[in-house]
Nucleic acid binder design. Structure first.
Length: 271
DNA sequence: CACGGATCCTGATGGC
DNA sequence: TGCCATCAGGATCCGT
């Protein structure tokens, strides 16, 4: 389940190898979350200028326009010059002069969308409401506190919504809230400045650590070279319902918040 | 406007 | 080759 660290690891493992490649052919499989938004032939002959990331989106800059790639829940990218034959869950391929970029996505929550200009077009609307990048200086504790003051839903749902800060998915949201000692159900606008500041630091810590370890979620994840992350993050609370809290030994609790499984320690985390 | 719920999809899992 | 229900998850859309 790709969250920000996994998407960034994917980007790092592809970008340097694919930049400057020219697109020769496009293969489209079963429909993904959104239509491509152009004729595949539009891409042919274009050069790949850069691979960037915004939130959980990969942005592939082309000579004219860009491709937005989202891995959804089950998506992964592989890139190489001798990939195995496409399987039934391989739904998009860019054949280039430097190798083939392939999106494998069994559940098809992912997407590849073309946008002509970064400042126009429907595809770029996907990027319009995204919050700040958590691993840059624009993610700043006081501004984070003020933004939370505007939100009345639970802090966990605010994190997942991605309008305040991007890249925090269901796993890292539970983990960051545990580290900050905050109950997932606490209303965002009720967090004091010190607690918001602690959460700010916890989000950075959790995401940076996962990134440093190669984008290891708790489930399987492999980068675009097919290397599986050996360094499995040890979850403090995620998927540990009923197991002893690693800090206080009280059983980890679980509940559903916004249709999402949520884990916390009733002793270590306060409202 | 802001918030909450439904929704898309398929593989894994567990109950019977 | 057992069948069926449930769950997982990101982000958009729709109803209140």
């Amino acid at each position: 389940m790709p969250e920000l660290p996994e998407v960034e690891v994917t980007r790092l493992s592809v970008a340097s190898r694919i930049v400057s490649a020219r697109i020769l052919q496009t293969l489209v499989g079963k429909p993904l979350r959104w239509p491509l938004g152009c004729e595949p032939s539009t891409l042919h002959g274009q050069q790949i200028l850069d691979v960037r990331r915004r939130g959980k989106y990969l942005l592939i800059d082309l000579t004219s326009g860009l491709l937005l790639v989202h891995l959804g829940m089950s998506g992964s990218i592989s890139f190489g010059s001798a990939l195995p034959p496409a399987g039934k869950h391989d739904h998009f391929e860019l054949v280039t002069t430097l190798g083939t970029l392939r999106l494998h996505d069994p559940r098809r929550f992912g997407a590849v969308v073309f946008a002509l200009e970064q400042s126009h077009g429907s595809a770029v609307k996907l990027l319009g409401r995204l919050g700040v990048e958590p691993l840059t200086d624009e993610f700043e504790a006081h501004a984070f506190y003020l933004a939370l003051k505007q939100k009345k839903s639970s802090i966990k749902q605010v994190l997942l919504a991605g309008e305040v800060v991007v890249g925090v998915g269901n796993i890292y949201a539970s983990e960051a809230l545990f580290i900050a000692g905050i109950r997932p159900t606490t209303r965002a606008d009720k967090l004091s400045k010190p607690r918001a500041t602690r959460l700010h630091a916890a989000i950075r810590q959790v995401l940076a650590q996962a990134l440093a370890k190669g984008g290891s979620t708790l489930r399987d994840f492999s980068n675009a070279s097919g290397e599986v992350g050996h360094f499995q993050l040890e979850a403090m609370v995620y998927d540990r319902a009923g197991l002893p809290c690693r800090i206080c030994n009280n059983p980890v609790k679980s509940l559903r918040l916004g249709q999402r499984s949520t884990f916390f320690c009733g002793y270590c985390q306060k409202h």
